[in-house]
Measured scan of single mutants.
Amino acid sequence: LVRYRTISKIPQITLNFVDLKGDPFLASPTSDREIIAPKIKERTHNVTEKVTQVLSLGADVLPEYKLQAPRIHRWTILHYSPFKAVWDWLILLLVIYTAVFTPYSAAFLLKETEEGPPATECGYACQPLAVVDLIVDIMFIVDILINFRTTYVNANEEVVSHPGRIAVHYFKGWFLIDMVAAIPFDLLIFGSGSEELIGLLKTARLLRLVRVARKLDRYSEYGAAVLFLLMCTFALIAHWLACIWYAIGNMEQPHMDSRIGWLHNLGDQIGKPYNSSGLGGPSIKDKYVTALYFTFSSLTSVGFGNVSPNTNSEKIFSICVMLIGSLMYASIFGNVSAIIQRLYSGTARYHTQMLRVREFIRFHQIPNPLRQRLEEYFQHAWSYTNGIDMNAVLKGFPECLQADICLHLNRSLLQHCKPFRGATKGCLRALAMKFKTTHAPPGDTLVHAGDLLTALYFISRGSIEILRGDVVVAILGKNDIFGEPLNLYARPGKSNGDVRALTYCDLHKIHR
């Protein structure tokens, strides 16, 4: 019993810090008490220290592992850092350059016999395009090294910054494609005289377009951006097909006994025919423009016929181009109408809503002055909100995010209106959640004399007048207030005048 009563005193000691020596009952000389009392004092002292730490809000209350900052290894790049964003855009520009100039170089340097010394005699450094290609190869190699040090988000939505895990993730992902696209074939085969082989191998750079397509997928929600990307894709495919079309004609031209190829026909049409040795002929500019003209006309199913396939190889390629053109029509131009419709969806919704308003007016036989006010209010409210119901949009977000959005939407009023000066951010967040926005066209009466005042109004834009009878008592403008002081009276009061809008007004109100 003594032991039980001794232990039962522990909660009292913990909360009230009572010393055991003052209790005459606990001072009985028993061996059990002498053993338990020192333990009680020690526990009391420890609990006292913990309570003191909690009340003082000291940093040592938290466990040590929670006080440590997340460790980022040296030379690790955050995937959302500004440097990584700028670097990704730079790589994107280099990939676009590669997609345009690599097929052009591979096709127009394929057994090209233009006048001038061969590239091997001039030297590697004197070729501007080769120098640019070398810079692109170096940048792609540097990009691989950067990807080995860039964080990523795993399946659990955690940012991984450990170098080993980053390397394994990159090896399992895009490393092989990036490595093949970054191989400097110019340096590996330079001086061997195989410019045709170098041009063909350099087309491996186009593998990076797969990554670019995935990154550009984030802009699919913007109709104008999608339309622009589709047109660029169409032009890029036409450019690639033009390079292939020229390569076919250029390879067949020296081996044909009869002059029936499209390059021969082009030379005869523009007065620059090929001679018996295969030299001469149109310039590279004429060849490229004509090839691009043929691919565009074939892809769009126009086909004027002034550039036509004559050999079997050219006919087979033309059939493939027609098939590609039909697929592009289905996948690209078939979506253009939907994209344009999405661009004008706001206008369509406006006309639909206006039609419903006019049908309501016609069905209920609203008189002319009231009908005009109804239409003007709808037009003004639509121009202010673009038909978007803010309350319906915010309803799907958590309250903390709703408060931040409301604070942002009402920031101008909260910053410049005098009653809100000096208020804490928590108070402003709470008030912003209570605001209701209303609009009024010129001549609209917001409050009639004798109406119950259940709200306090803040003028965000425009001006109003307060009338008693036919006498203008006051004219209020931006950041002015009218209405009933909230919670100042037990019952809502009545208006002693009319409140009429002089201009288009936007008002925020808080109800009782």
Rank of each mutant, 00 (worst) to 15 (best):
P442C: 03
F140V: 01
A338E: 03
A119G: 14
K436D: 10
H448M: 04
L92Y: 04
R349N: 07
F234E: 14
Q402C: 01
L431C: 01
E221Y: 05
I339W: 04
I270L: 08
G123Q: 01
K84R: 01
I244L: 04
S337G: 14
R205N: 01
F171E: 01
Y80W: 04
S383I: 09
L263E: 03
A348S: 06
T113M: 03
T385Y: 14
V95T: 07
Y65Q: 14
H416K: 08
K66C: 03
L263S: 01
T385W: 04
M251F: 09
T437R: 09
E195M: 14
D178N: 01
P82E: 03
Q253E: 11
V336L: 04
S276H: 09
I388A: 04
A69Q: 05
L414N: 02
G346D: 10
M328R: 03
I96G: 04
A130W: 11
I237S: 04
R342G: 10
W262T: 01
A181C: 03
D268E: 14
Y222E: 04
R218L: 08
D444A: 09
K84L: 03
Q127F: 11
G191K: 13
L209K: 01
F101G: 01
D217M: 08
M179W: 08
N368I: 05
K84W: 05
V210Q: 13
F435G: 02
H264V: 04
K425W: 01
H73D: 05
V131D: 01
L200D: 01
N386I: 04
G261W: 01
Y170M: 01
N335E: 07
I141P: 01
Q341A: 14
V100H: 01
M328G: 05
P398R: 02
R208A: 06
H169W: 04
L413V: 10
H162G: 09
Y384S: 10
E121W: 07
I270F: 03
V159K: 01
L431P: 02
N156Y: 08
V159D: 01
L216N: 04
A106H: 01
P273T: 01
L241T: 04
A430T: 12
Y219G: 03
M139D: 01
H408M: 03
R429D: 01
V393D: 01
A330N: 01
